[in-house]
Amino acid sequence: MSVPTVPRRIRSIPYLLLAPALIVIVGVLGYPLATLVQISFQKYGLAELLKGSGSWTGLSHYTDIVGDSFFWGVVGRTIVFTAVNVALTVGAGTLIALLMRKAHRAVRLTATVALVAVWATPGLVAIAVWQWMFDYEFGVVNWLLTKLGAGDFTHHNWFENPVQGLGVVTAVIVWGAVPFVAISLHAALTQVPDEVVEAAELDGAGRLQVFRYVILPVIRPVLALLTLLQIIWDFQVFNQVWVMTGGAPTEGYYLIGVYSYVQSFGVGDYGSGAAVAVVMVLLLALVAFGYVRGLLRKEQTQ
């Protein structure tokens, strides 16, 4: 009896196995995505919500958006916000991973425990805790800053000024995202052979040079993936802003995710909200496109 080689026997097996996954993904993701695009070309308000269908308005939502300086302000704020968050997250994560590589076993274990604890903290819990730390009256941050002589922060309300409020949001996001980056990079760093680093050091390479020419080439694929994921996550931030402002963010807090939400569920103009969301998807697709292409090419050569 010959060993049945798997693919030749029944060609439909893989398709049958994949079918449920395909149905769910296409049904609950592909179809909504198509619906999203469709709605963005429609007048879809509360009346249409009751009726269950919108009426076509062509490109009007998009022409409105493109001509709206407020929208471009939101996009600009989102890009700056994303850049700052991603840079801080990836920078801090890389630094911690590099430190862990050099660290004593016990210290590394301590750091791992702290990182995993933060990683495991649910997003909503993180929001609550940071809100408490930044509370204007009894918050520990105001006390600490005053104590450190950074100025008088007694009764300083961080959420009055959207720039400062988004700063607190940044702290929450970076704090929550650093463990994933640090632990993934630390795993990637174990692939850097110690001998090569030592050889480079013996040859007189400085710390920066070792990082640039020995370590970076090894961890670059992981670093690229992590950066991409952070961009995708930070570009669509909603929860932190929404919950920390008590569900009532002022316009200075509008990131694109918040804006799209307010347009649809706040104002009740789902068509315009959908158009904003489509622009958000397109901007992210632009970033992701180059990355996915490179990845597929690699999978092909393997």
């Binding site: 395909l22 799209s260 969301a277 958000m280 998807v281």
Partner: peptide, 28 residues
């Protein structure tokens, strides 16, 4: 376990799908 036509496409889809922001899909 299987080599089949459309495999690449499915892998690509899985990767792309992870990049669709949840925030954009709540409306539809």
């Amino acid at each position: 376990r299987f080599e089949f036509t459309g495999r690449q496409l499915f892998v690509a889809m899985i990767l792309v799908v992870q990049m669709v922001p949840a925030g954009a899909l709540i409306i539809p």
